[in-house]
Nucleic acid binder design. Structure first.
Lengths: 208, 208, 208, 208
DNA sequence: TCCTAATCGAGACGGTACGTCAGGTCTTCTT
DNA sequence: AAGAAGACCTGACGTACCGTCTCGATTAGGA
């Protein structure tokens, strides 16, 4: 989803003054800076954003239908790119995936309230759907692809539900981000999660 | 955290008309009903709550310092009680714990927006702390206790990080609740998660 | 017409905090002062009035439905009281009436734009009706009463249309106020108008 | 005052696309039609006018500096031409003059809001001056000329103030138009006014 | 039984933000 | 260069809530 103005910018030849692309960037970056400056999310009114960025309110409403829709673009602009998978083994790929999530969690922690923006987006199903489709889903697909290859290579039991497995792997990071925001995401966490899962939980003595 | 009025209800002998406990209940239940009637969270102003419940605004502010603080009590009133643990085995205890989470997830799904209330609470660190301490933490302690007993009984490897393990177990439910609200929480999910984890992910043939 | 809030201030016992009468006065006087300070009428937004008087916009809208309705009260507050009629003769009464109009015209001239406020009121038929009924009509009735008495006393021809005569007497003042705002309203104008009319326009030699 | 654009249409040879004179007419007539269609004056924004007439906003601003300046041309376009004076007698000339005013009043009544446009023009001294100089003043000069001739012919007392007399004659029409918009302007009103004034107000019996 | 004081519903109060609309100015492409 | 179109910043519009503050009317003690 890109800026979502419902105006006549759809078809036909360009008529009238075209929208300035600089404004889009300025607004999104302005919001980001305000958040990083420690402005509480509740004080982020459209009015204030417009004032700070030096832009008319109408110019914002021309592109986004409201605060939430704007936040989608803000959060998306803060998303890191998809990681490069080494492809050497199931373990290595999973570690890289989780490490990417860990780094994102750290970054969001640093930029203060980006978290809450994330939470706020759940206010509207429509907004959440947009975020889900462009951010959550692609990552999930990537993880499932890694798992599928792992099973084909015999690195995973064939009878494990891939969807569930993906949830199990991603889960710990989410728990620490959402439910335990004071918990840290230490270096090596990605390896620890993957290795714990791949080694199994039962005592080794059982196999003797 | 109970109703939080900072008024003169602190020390000394009771003077003047005492606060009606019925009001507390009426307000919390009123909010709950509004949410269940499909009123979007964004339209839940203190003004509207007071109007609907038939209560003065000041009466609400006398008890809660704001919307978020009120929501804490609303969400807490919707929390199910801690489950009874059978204590027969690590697996059985974990299944009961997860099943309790699953049922809560389903209930919240039904009452539509309770989720968002949850998300909204993250706006204020103070509010979130209150919710975390009275709702999240006790459940977490319960889970860690179960795991500790499992390790003492030799049902778990001794070298696994208990904190991490708890996150791994709770994770899938959280992922489906937070990141994939369209995913369902089918019957048997609790067992599936626990068994998948306890059986390990590697192919059994490898150990032959 | 007094402050015209359409709120529930109609029947029943007084409920809730009563409206402060001081606000009414403060707003009306505030507008008056702004006008006297030379603020152009076009810059008199409700927003600015509220800001200047130190009052919430809602407080204004609670009493008046818009700028025009507020202006009615402003103009009315600037109206002088009905003059005391001597009753000694038709001429004396008419002079007093006109002199009152003349003084009002001078006062309005001084307070700069009150004129324009007057003009502005014609934007809405409803508003104008309110002004007409409470300000224009009573004065007109007073004038007609004076004329009626004059006819009964034999000071006027019996076949003259009283309504028309009233218009003839008031007209000159209105012309100078509305069409020739640069014309002055010199002392003695009232006497001059009345005497000119009562003496007739034809040369006296005609009666020889 | 003609269209007032301050653009490069002053001296030198014509360069680029010449201004279309049709636009001037189209805009003025468009406003007139909107008014006659019952559009309230308050809803007559430049924006709407441009949209309705199918013209760019800048095209309007190129010719008029604002709404009021445009209104001057609109009202002037609605002015009837100066009446032809018979010159047979003072009375006949005055009747023709007043009759012309009466007809204009009726026309404006019909086109509803033209009145208000008139009132609105008083917002700006500059605008009002323009209207006054091109519309009000010429008519006034005509009236004074008629009166002057009447005095020279011995049809008027020599000691009457001509300016005042003109105001007296025009006044009744203005009163009914401005202060009593519900009063009608019946046929024969012009004669009635003039004759009433010329016959004098005192009972004839007094001179016996 | 009265008195005192805090409570209750109601709603006015000074503010702030909402989302829309218009004012004038400025691009853009077309004529 | 002027045309229509429409984006741009500014600021007012009228509404809704915010959290606080009066109101008159209960409701419990304690005197």
């Amino acid at each position: 989803m890109s800026p979502a103005g419902t105006g006549p910018r759809q078809g036909g030849p360009a008529r009238g003054r075209p929208r300035s692309e600089a404004v889009e960037r300025a607004v999104v970056e302005g919001v980001m800076e305000l958040l990083e400056d420690g402005v509480p999310l509740a004080e982020l009114s459209i009015e204030r954003i417009a004032r700070t960025v030096g832009v008319g309110k109408a110019t914002i409403y021309r592109r986004w239908s409201g605060k939430e829709e704007l936040f989608v673009d803000v959060v998306r602009a803060a998303e890191p790119p998809d990681p490069e998978l080494p492809g050497t083994s199931l373990r290595d790929d999973l570690v890289v995936l989780l490490e990417s999530l860990r780094r994102r969690g750290l970054a969001n922690r640093a930029s203060a309230i980006l978290h809450n923006v994330h939470a706020q987006m759940k206010s509207s199903p429509r907004i959440w759907a947009a975020y889900h489709d462009t951010v959550v889903l692609p990552r999930r697909r990537l993880g499932l692809e890694v798992l599928r290859r792992g099973r084909e290579n015999g690195e995973l039991r064939a009878d494990v539900d891939m969807e569930l497995l993906n949830d199990i792997i991603v889960g710990p990071l989410l728990v620490r981000t959402v439910l335990r925001p004071d918990a840290d995401l230490p270096e090596g966490l990605a390896e620890q999660v993957v290795d714990t899962l791949l080694q199994g939980l039962r005592p080794v003595s059982r196999h003797a």
